[in-house]
Amino acid sequence: MNFLTFFHLVAVFLLCIGLFGIIWRRTIVGILLSVELMLNGAGLSIMASTQLTGTANALGQVGTLLVMGLAAAEATLVLAIILVVAKRFGTIELRYISSLRE
């Protein structure tokens, strides 16, 4: 067990608890929170893999930065989608909006 393994275990933990949350949560906002957890785990894993091995350090830092940018774009779009869904269906609970037709 070295340092890299610790960091990777934390990243795997974030991935797993994000998946758990996606199934467990009932609203779109809850799922958005879980997805943010998973993306954070991905960034942490990329960063630790390059900082703690002989790979070029800039590779991992830029990769983590790109993951953050994608997460910000995703959060923006999901906010708009949540607003439209809340307007159209009157609820953001997944139980009521998971069917394709009435």
């Binding site: 067990m1 393994t5 900082q51 091995t53 002989g54 350090n57």
Partner: peptide, 13 residues
């Protein structure tokens, strides 16, 4: 992760 762990530096640059 545990089985295929590769040696890591302890002080990152």
């Amino acid at each position: 992760v545990i089985k295929a762990s590769i040696p890591s530096l302890s002080t990152p640059q």
